Amino acid sequence: MARTAVILVTSEFDALWKETAMKFETGCRHYIGHKPCRYGQLCEDCPNAEPAGARVLIIKTGALGDVLRTTSLLPAIHRAHPGARVAWLTAPAAAPLLIGNDLVHEILPFDHAAYPALAPRRFDLLISLDKEPGPAGLAELVHAGARRGFGLSPHGAPYPLNAAAEPFFALGLSDELKFEKNEKSYHQLIAEAVELEYLGERPALHLTDVEREAGRDILRQAGWDGAQPVIGINTGAGLEFANKMMSTAAILDLIDALSAETRGLFIALLGGPNETGKNNNIARASRLRAVNTGTGHSLRLFAGLVSQCGVVIAGDTLAMHMAIALERPVAALFGPTTPREIDLFGRGRKFMSHMDCAPCYRKSCDARHTCMDLFSAADIARAAVELLNGSD
């Protein structure tokens, strides 16, 4: 009986197929190919068919904070190319930062399948913003009408693909230019490098209401009463550069200063897996005036937690970039990295180390007192409370 039903269905399908002059509109901006499009119907006589605009490929794979802040470029792309279809090649770990952004139509993982997935395709514009050999080399292989940003030379070294990218590229070759001369934000620099007009747009991180509520749930589980002002202290940083965040002792001094500055705060310790022990130690040593909110959250759950902070205190880290994208006020601490390229968009304060060796971008440091431990805890606490009260 089951076999007869299958034969009947197959027969009907075959008959329908023979009667239909099937079209596959791969050039339609809504066409996906491996599943129904947003309108859920076949291409033949579809009233919603719409030619795709310019096909743009962005190659920006890391680091996580850099991927997020590069989203400020998207409005400029769509202004210059109305109706563009934007594909973004990024590291699988960074892909969650792009989910929900309507200005990105396709998120491609930078993995072993990246080249086979891109080889047959043709793009009108390639924007390549990584200098690492893998993504920069892939930029050389992609078929594109215009190439902007960075590529990989026959000698195996990165180079600027277009003349407009040369000033941005040069910042990586000269400490004087990067640390002393440059006065432009990263957002303006990348826009100019790829020949687009930047109008002051901030990066964007789109969270659902469910994800924001999940952030509130984490705080409630940690003891938040739902009414206390929340100050988040991000206690860690990536491992690329040394000393991008304060030591345990310096963070405890900061907690003391915050407690002295105002009463009734809920101080949330933020961090990733590398900060598990550090955050537990800080919470205990602070006599639970600061609370560990967990260090094993997914990227988007961590963003949901950041979104619920009234102020975020962080070094030059992903947490800082998330807070900026989520329009949360930031007290941003800069030691080994330069603050010159960071735009807080009028919602924060920058604290810069005054050590002679900073910024340095070193991977290790043997200084007895590091640049990140010489900030005034009282000054940071005062600024954080002022930001919390909206007086910045």
Score class of each variant (00 low, 15 high):
257 A>L: 05
201 E>C: 07
86 V>L: 12
243 N>D: 10
134 G>Q: 03
228 Q>H: 02
85 R>F: 13
214 A>C: 01
221 Q>E: 15
55 R>S: 05
341 E>A: 14
8 L>M: 03
97 L>S: 10
357 C>W: 13
305 L>M: 14
352 M>P: 00
319 A>G: 02
146 A>C: 06
3 R>A: 00
5 A>E: 14
364 S>H: 03
102 D>K: 15
145 G>F: 08
278 K>N: 11
280 N>Q: 10
114 A>Q: 08
169 F>N: 00
299 L>H: 12
6 V>Q: 08
373 D>V: 10
371 C>M: 05
157 A>C: 10
327 E>L: 11
164 A>S: 15
117 A>Q: 06
192 E>P: 08
270 L>W: 12
131 K>F: 02
198 Y>G: 01
220 R>D: 03
123 F>M: 02
106 E>M: 02
251 I>R: 03
139 A>P: 00
57 L>M: 06
361 Y>W: 05
90 T>E: 09
175 D>G: 11
314 A>V: 02
40 G>E: 12
348 G>M: 04
180 E>V: 10
343 D>F: 08
194 V>K: 09
167 P>H: 13
34 H>E: 01
106 E>L: 05
210 V>L: 11
7 I>G: 00
273 P>E: 13
142 V>I: 05
315 G>K: 03
64 L>I: 08
233 I>W: 07
129 L>N: 03
322 M>A: 14
356 D>I: 10
302 F>M: 13
165 A>V: 05
157 A>D: 15
359 P>E: 09
271 G>R: 12
230 V>H: 14
78 H>A: 00
208 T>K: 01
177 L>R: 15
181 K>V: 14
387 L>T: 05
254 L>N: 07
117 A>M: 04
370 T>N: 08
386 E>W: 05
181 K>N: 09
370 T>W: 07
21 A>R: 13
205 L>Q: 09
18 K>Q: 12
302 F>Y: 15
333 L>K: 10
275 E>L: 02
6 V>I: 14
151 G>D: 09
192 E>K: 03
180 E>T: 07
120 P>D: 01
214 A>H: 04
103 L>E: 13
78 H>M: 01
250 A>H: 12
317 T>D: 06
384 A>T: 00
137 G>M: 00
142 V>S: 00
133 P>R: 03
10 T>L: 15
22 M>R: 14
124 D>Y: 02
267 I>R: 13
12 E>I: 05
51 P>A: 12
382 R>E: 13
223 G>A: 10
195 E>W: 00
153 S>Q: 07
65 G>S: 06
160 P>V: 08
376 S>D: 07
86 V>A: 11
194 V>A: 09
